[in-house]
Structure formats: structure tokens, C-alpha cells
Nucleic acid binder design. Sequence first.
RNA 1: GGGCUCGUAGCUCAGCAUGGACAGAGCGAACGCCUCCUAAGCGUUAGGUCGAGGGUUCGAAUCCCUCCGGGCCCGCCA
Length: 632
Amino acid sequence: MTFRLFKDEVRRLLQQALDDAGCPKVDFDVSEPQHKEFGDLACNVAFQLAKPLKKAPPKIAAELVEGLKLKIRDTLVLSAEAHPAGHINFKADYSRLSSATLARALKSPENYGYHDSGQGRHIVIEHTSVNPNKALHVGHMRNVIIGDVLYRIMKATNHRATVLNYVDDSGLQVADIVVGFKFAGFDVEPPKGKKFDHYCGDAVYVKINEMYEKDPPLVEKRKLVLKEMEEGKSELARFAADITLRVLNEQLKTCWRMRARYDLLNFESHIVVSKLWGKAFELLKNSKITHFEEEGKNKGCWVIEAKDEEDKVLVRSDGTATYIAKDIPYAAWKLGLVDDPFSYHEFVGQWDGSTLYATMLGGGKPASKEFNGGERVITIIDSRQARLQRIISQVLSKIGAGTREYFHLGYEAVTLSSDTAKAFGIDIGDRQFMHMSGRKGIYVNADYVLDTLHAKAYEEVKMRNPGFTEQQLNATAEEVAISAIRYNMIKQDLDKIITFDVKESLSLEGDTGPYLQYAYARSQRILEKSGQTVDNDARFELLTHEAEIAMIKEIAKLDLVVEDAARSLSPKSLARYSYILATTFNLFYEKVPVLKEGNADIRMARLALVKALGVALKNALDVLGITALDRM
RNA sequence: GGGCUCGUAGCUCAGCAUGGACAGAGCGAACGCCUCCUAAGCGUUAGGUCGAGGGUUCGAAUCCCUCCGGGCCCGCCA
């Protein structure tokens, strides 16, 4: 919270010094130096001024510092120094910064580190959107977790965020398993003990795709099923809808297990039937984004011209709409550019106490809250869809999105490591990884990952906590498992391919989620064992050890990190910050005794510091969707 | 062929938007630290032509160009 104040103050003082010296206006940077011996903040303005002033940077820096020195009294700034290299280095006055930071964290822990940059703006986030014919695999996990962390970041920055999960209940993939059940003899009931979504994906979907190869008439059946599903009246269509719901309910269990939550399920079939497409098509025609092609390879089609791309067919020459004709009206609905054709019903209650709604047509209720109409709409889909998503963005900006923005947040695929591929009997030779394939049954199930992590964590927890009940062991193991996978899925940049290795993913040490939880648990045990109530106004000026100062500084930065994560849509930066926070604490833990400190004032100040660290770490973990554990 | 994207230590990755001070972590390796708040921890050592080349600049991992290598996307399929 307070590092921001310190930074602002440095900027203000610098600007004054520059004005006083009559310097020309230049852009300059105030940021943390690479090495801590240079101080807490550094400025490069002397380099920027070198050319206009025709003077050497060290000289400029030295002169500016002369002016600064007079101004820093009674501020958060302790010193300003000119480094011979030309930088101006600032040190914070920790006698002020410490108490400001720690008192704040201790007195309002529930919102410490959160920020108001969103100012209540409405943001719509879509994630998950897994075809309802199979169970989630690790690739889907990345989507769910990125989306959910983004949602939490938006909440932490005072955005009004709604989360959508798009259910493609009228597509080919659902048709495939319906063909399996109705025309290929698959039992509708899974074998005992097998989740229905796993059964549909692992057995029915994979095998029906094998059968298509040998049995072409089955492919014809799929067309029939697809057609009936679209018309939505027949017994077959009702059967398909039942299957979809059953799979969806199982998928949601997995998502909830990962601590994701949603506001609304958008059924694709409702978009199709709602005639939203017709309205969107009118909008497109009116704004001349689409035209009827008179000749060429797209003769007889309505096409859109996309910037630097080939024309995209919107309406086929037989008058039927392509899939983009579902995406565009849906996107327009999200932005609130078309009248809302849906009514809503309460689908199910969720683990966090919120209600998950679902779209419906006719009946139900009008929206009791705003699901759509976001000032910003963020759609989380893997980057293979980047091209199409770009076209959708372009189209929407042309049909009157105005200041509203449709944004595709892409991320790279999760692939399988060489060793994990071997587990499927596949040798990938020299290659580093291989892509998963739902159709071929080559993927690692999300539930399997969670179960395996849970089992490993269970053993670790049991070893360390012999007194735990079975219930405690399982509850703790589950939290550790979730933190491991959540952290694993967001700690790297979105545009990096994740090569998933079953063995490697089981690590609970080093740069992992459990490491963060462990640091937190250690901090809470110190507080618990002290048996003392922490004094929120302890004598913080007694905290002078290097490790203590480092911790205070990190704690003071939380809101800057949260704000930055929201601005740059970057879950990763929060993960990295949390890791640094934990590392800083672990260092303190090694070097600075708390309970054994003889001086009562110092002990209390350290306890307060430990408690404040706990507040910052817990709040950071909350945003990552990781539960802070008191013991593990 | 065109577009997008990645290429930093043996492996996995930060740093790149807004160019600046000796390029940082984790894993793995070797060695060390529990009579002391949970060792899921901490430390030491080894390990780097920042893919290559050119350019801009006082200064480039960071910006620009070319090339090389990996991946993805380019259907009247969804």
C-alpha cells in the first residue's frame, strides 16, 4: 500500500527538482534497481537529460541531488544519492514506511493490498467453455485457472465482474456421443465407479471416432443427429439435451474442485434458436461489413472482409450460416449491442455460496442481475483461435462497440512431455513434446491430476501431522493439490507452451503452490505458539534487520502488483510476487528469531511483522485461488 | 506460400511494454545446515556467445531489419 506513496513521493520530489533547475521536459523512469545495494528506487532521468543539456549523466545527477537533498525532510524518502554511473538512487525511510505499512495491514486485513483501479466498471469474462461431451483434461485446466484468477484479479481491483461459461450443446462433438449411444450400442450408463464425463470422453467419443473410419454410414447418422439437435423438437434431440446436461454437471464438479465459479451458463442452442443471428446479420449489413459475393470461389455467399486476411464466409451459398454466425451475435450480446433475448433460471448453487444461472428461452425470469453489457469483454480461448477472435473483435468494433471492447485473451497449449507420451505408448523421438488429442484419447484427465496430487500431498501431510484426523488429512491434502496445479498453470507467461509431465507436476517443493502455503503455515504457527495478541501499534521502528526490512518492503508492494496484474491481464505477475513474498519470509524465518527474542518490545514488533506478512500473503493467495493453510 | 508466436544456465522459466549500473529464480548436480518458531525450508559451489548476423543508440537480452530453428493458424468443418 505504502510503497506506492513512497514512489509517488520520489516522483514528485524529482519533478520539483527538475522544475527548479529549469530542465526540459523528458520522460523518465522511477523503478526498483536490480541490486538492492543501490537503494529502494532508482531514476534514470540524468541519462534522459544528457542530450538536451549536453552534459554528462553523472554531473546532471549530482546537481539534481543537491536540490533534492533539501526537499526530502519529513517525507518517506530517507536519502537521494547520485551514483557515479549516472543514476539517482533513493532510500526509503523505514522508520516511517514500516509503521505505515504494517499498521495498515494489521488494521484492515480483509482488503489489504486491493485497489480501486476498476472503479466499479463492469467486465465480462468467459472461460472454460468445454464441449459437453467429455471430461476436462490438463489443457482445459489451464483455461479454467487463468480465467478464474483473472476474475479474482478483477474483483480485487473493484471491477464488477461476471463470469460466463459457454456450452456448445449443439455441436458435432455432442452429436458424436449421441451417435455412440443411439446407433453404436454404447450403454448410456457408465461402468460402476466411472464418472459420466470420463466415460463419454474416454470410451464413447474416442471409440465412435474409430468406428467412423470403418463404418461410413455412421457418419450419415451423425448428420441426422446434428440436424435433429438443431431443430430441437424430436425425442433424439431431448436425449441429446439430457446427455449434455449430465456431462456438464460432471464437468462443473471438476471446475468447482479447482475453486472456479461462474455466474452464467450460455447454451449455444439458445443463441441459435433466439434469432440473435438475424439481428446481428442486419447490423452487419447496415454497417456494410458483409457483402454478397457475385463471383469467384465464394460466389453466392455473404462474406466479411477482414483486415489482412482472406474473406471469411458468413452465410453459405445454400443460405445456412457458418459457425461465425454463432460467435458474432454471442459476442455482440456480451457487449450489450443487441437486445437480450434470454430469460434466466437458477441452475445450481455453487461452493462459494453464489448461484449459477443458465440461459433459457421463454419462461424463467428476466435477468435479476446484469450478465452481459460489459464495458470490457474478455474471452479466454487458446491461441489457435487467435485469427478468428481477431476478426470478431474487428467486426464488433465496426458495428458500434464504441468505447466498449471485445478482447481475446489467448494462451498457448498444454502438451505432453516425452515421458508422459510414453505412458500412452507413443514414442515421440527427438521431439520435446506432443499435442494432446481428445479424439484419439491422448490426454491427461483433470480429475486424474487432482487425485494424484491429492494422494501425494496426503502422504506428506500425514507424515508431518500425526495427530490429524482423516478428515483433516484429506481437507489439507486437497488444498495442497489445488494450489500445486493452480500455481503450475499460471506461473509462466500465457504465450509459453506448457509441457506437462505427470511426474514433474507432482513436485511440491521449490517454485510451487505448496511452497507458498508452507511459508504461510510457518508464519501462523509462530503467531499461535506465541500465545500473545498482536499489538497493531507495536514499536515497528525496532525492525531494522535486513531480512525484516526486505519483508516490509515486499508487503508494502501488494497493491501495486495487483493493479499491474489487472492492467496487463497477467495472472503470472501475481504468482511471481507471491513467490518472492514467501521467499523473503523464509529468509527471515532462518535468520531472525521471534519467539526466542528476549526483548519484549522487539518480540512484539516481530510478531506484528509476521502477522502482517500473513495478511499480505493470504490476500495474494486469495487472488490466485489458493487457500492459505494454518497447518500443513 | 502468407500470418501469428516462441527461442535467455543441462532442464523449466523471470527480466523485454516505458533501452541504462556485475542477466535472475526453480529443478537437476556436488557439498553443507534440524539439542533452535514444521527441513514442503535455508546456504555454498558449478553452470550463460541472452538462437545467428546486421542496424539504431553514449548504452541493446530489451527497439528495428534479415536469417535460422520449434510451434500454431490459414475450409461454403465446428
